[in-house]
Nucleic acid binder design. Structure first.
Lengths: 345, 345
DNA sequence: AGCGGCCCTGTAACCGCTTACATGGTGCCG
DNA sequence: CGGCACCATGTAAGCGGTTACAGGGCCGCT
């Protein structure tokens, strides 16, 4: 037999279908479904029922076009697969999803075929309501241009001019690490720093805190025990070899990030120096593997950074529920097995 | 003086502005800028110049509405900050950005307040042209429903019914690991497996390959040396303690993932067993930290998985440039310091 | 009863782009 | 030289929502 009533594969319902089915106009549907005022309760109920029945959901593209808001936020990141970044992204995604925002990731910098922030911003054009920069440097001009497009902007990891930022007190980080080492009795402390050409602020601040704590203890930091690094494992491995070859080597090393500290562990093993017997080691981050290798470190909750950043922009965009804590995020010393009193006096 | 000619903050140019400025219709602008045929070269040049001059870029929302294609892809992930996932995401993002697609990340599962794939799919509604599932289980029905919306679908990490997948040959992985251990002379080999309730296919296949290699060598796998795990560091730590407490403990351990292998290293240290003297250890992944701890492992290039998946969907959506390799991605043994011949006969 | 005001609802104009279709111009062929 | 193709371009109708504005009903007040 023929099949005149063949269901031609259910098309997506439009707002018009809902209106028809509920016996109201599309305007009323739109208002009812978005919980706008001035809709009779009975009407709203009827509309909601119809929408449910038809499995209706507003087409985001249409809403975006009509309202000019995209309900999505971009996370601009250097290394998408870096430990820090990926945790931030996870934090962002969680709260964005909760608030009904899409999370768009965009990579910049050397990891991403050298796409720069500028062209990234270009790609972001009209796509998002907010941008969360994680650990990326953006010039004032770029920020201004972006702000002009009425985008909510936040920085994670370090401060950026004129926009709110979430992160930790990196000076305090340096201070905590140094103090721990000093209290153990160390006097000569090596520092695995950030890159020494570029003026990155995070390493700079940690170094600053480190030196402040040294001076507070009546010690003088020895810059010949500083070695630059790029936050990679390899840097740490190289650094420990260099440091331990010093005429008067350090009895402890402060690596500005756990990843470099891991490198130290690796390099130390190869160089025949034992930790913490020959040299103590402390990092920063409390990376997932810090417990695995017993690394003493300064803990920070990175996913929480991302979550805060997201709450910040979502709130700024008028969908905030919870108030956002703007203080520096908490940090704390986690003592494990890579730090001990110096063996040599 | 008054300022009648005040620039009222440059609004975004629309296609109409470009049309006016180039002296053509909006249709022509649209065609010219998208490199469609049937546009005179001279016209195209003029339009392009005008667009450049006005810093025009099409509003994505409007395009999406008009074309029904969003030029973005969703990456559905369990643990956004997991090593595997974040590398896949990075790979995806790189090629998507290149092809002009946005990458939207969406977390599912326990990490994301238990959002399930279903509600995630709901969130994805009409938002993307394609979905890349990484290491997430999706039922045939869900896939069918998604396919119905004419979405390009790909799975990364393991096979999913009816859709293409990219990943490695996990049976071969198990085989390679086992063979390496066997060639070193090991006969009793422990296995840190996947969770034993859920029928995850990846661990199952690796186990399968492992057992096949054992049998090929005339050995019989001993299930009392199998212990379940959840791919976490802690699982590995627990496992090694359990395994080494066995009446007749293994001389080697095969951890189905490096993260668990790291746990083994951690647990071994605490339990007073040395690697590889007391027990050899091999993992899978070649995690960034495998070199740090000298872990012997089976290497895979995870970012490449993501890249392939992205190329696959982008190609399927008609923007593919490069052909996509559908064979299993390459893997190889990386020998480091955690494997050695057994000390005990 | 008349009137103002407040709610609730509907009409229709947009948002900015894509594309089917119509139109006019050109070149080529018979 | 007429006619036909074909190419370049324009016109206008969507795409599926949002929202300014208008209108109608009802209540309370004078």
């Amino acid at each position: 037999m023929s099949d005149p009533a063949a269901q031609p594969r259910r098309e997506r319902a439009t707002i018009e279908d809902v209106a028809r089915s509920a016996g109201v106009s599309v305007a009323t549907v739109s208002r009812a479904l978005r919980n706008l005022p001035n809709v009779a309760d009975s009407t709203r109920a009827r509309v909601e029922a119809a929408a449910l029945e038809l499995d209706y959901r507003a087409d985001p593209a249409a809403s975006r076009l009509a309202t000019g808001r995209s309900r999505s936020v971009a996370v601009v990141v250097q290394l998408l697969n870096g430990w820090y970044s990926s945790h931030v992204v996870a934090g962002v995604e969680a709260v964005c999803a909760e608030a009904g925002y899409d999370t768009i990731v965009v990579g910049v910098g050397p990891g991403s075929r050298d796409r720069d922030v500028f062209s990234a911003a270009d790609a972001i054009h009209r796509r998002v309501d907010a941008i969360i920069f994680v650990d990326v440097r953006v010039s004032s001009e770029e920020l201004a241009a972006l702000a002009e497009q009425s985008l909510a902007l936040v920085s994670v990891g370090h401060e950026l001019p004129q926009i709110p930022s979430v992160g930790i007190d990196d000076i305090e980080v340096g201070r905590i690490a140094a103090r721990h080492l000093i209290e153990l009795g160390h006097r000569r402390i090596g520092l695995i720093n950030g890159p020494d050409e570029l003026p990155f602020v995070v390493p700079h601040q940690r170094q600053h805190g480190f030196e402040a704590a040294m001076r507070d203890a009546g010690l003088v930091p020895d810059p010949t025990l500083y070695t630059p690094g790029n936050f990679t494992v390899q840097d740490g491995a190289d650094a420990v070899i260099e440091l331990m070859a010093h005429d008067d080597p350090p009895t402890a090393i402060f690596a500005l990030a756990d990843e470099m500290a891991f490198g130290v562990i690796l390099g130390a093993e190869q160089a025949g120096v034992t930790i913490p017997d020959d040299v103590s080691l402390i990092g920063v981050d409390d990376h997932d593997f810090a417990p695995v290798v017993g690394l003493t470190t300064v803990h920070q909750d990175v996913a929480e950074h991302g979550a805060r950043a997201a709450r910040l922009v979502v709130g700024q965009l008028g969908h905030g529920d919870e108030p956002v804590d703007l203080d520096p995020a908490p940090i704390r010393l986690v003592e494990r097995r890579t730090t001990a009193p110096p063996r040599r006096a």
